[in-house]
Structure formats: C-alpha cells, structure tokens
C-alpha cells in the first residue's frame, strides 16, 4: 500500500484509493489479503490526525479573535448540512431500499 502511494504525484491519497480498489477488483485472493492488512488501519484511523489537531495552538490568537463566528460556522453548517444530506439521501435512496438488504 505504501509503495502504491510512493509512486504517485498529488493528490496521492485519492489516486491510491482508486488503484487499491482496482487491485481488489482484479483478484479475490489479493482482495482478502488487502482487507486483512487494512483492518487495524481502518480501526485506528483517528490516531493519524492527532498531530494535525494540535496545530490549533499555532494560530491560537487569530482563532480566539473569531472564536464565536468559527464555532457558529462549524456547528451550524455541520448540523444543517448533515440534516439536509440525510433527508435528501433518504428521499432519493428510499426507492432502492427494497433492493438493499
């Protein structure tokens, strides 16, 4: 998986995702091996975000000056768009729900 990542230009993560999907579609044995290898990574994905999150401290003063606006923007837009996407997806996808077990 890392080798796949190395040989690619940016945006590597998505090209890698596509390539790995293609590889898994090619061979069933390979797909099984890859999914076994990926399980611990998938279960612990949030670990890799820890250093990025702490980056907040570097820009603390700018963020603090606009804290209310930022909080409102993030919480408000996230709640509303989660709701709208869920509602819309539910409407759009419900016709297929009989086919989806």
């Amino acid at each position: 998986m890392l080798v796949v990542q190395f040989s690619l230009p940016l945006p590597g993560a998505l090209l890698g995702l596509g390539l790995l999907s293609a590889l898994m579609a090619l061979s069933k044995a390979l797909a099984r091996a890859i999914s076994r290898a990926a399980q611990p990574i998938l279960a612990n994905m949030s670990f890799f975000f820890i250093p990025a999150v702490l980056g907040i401290a570097i820009y603390w003063s700018i963020l603090q000056a606009n804290l209310l606006a930022i909080l409102l923007a993030i919480v408000g837009s996230t709640v509303v768009s989660l709701g709208v996407s869920y509602w819309l997806a539910k409407k759009l996808l419900s016709r297929q729900s009989d086919e989806i077990p």
Binding site: Q5, A13, L17, L20, S21, I34, S35, A38, L42
Partner: peptide, 10 residues
C-alpha cells in the same frame, strides 16, 4: 495520514 486514507478502498 495520506497513505492511511487509501485503506478506505477496503
């Protein structure tokens, strides 16, 4: 973080 995102292919 980048390579790990690739695991979402599974």
């Amino acid at each position: 973080l980048g390579p790990v995102t690739v695991a979402l292919a599974v």
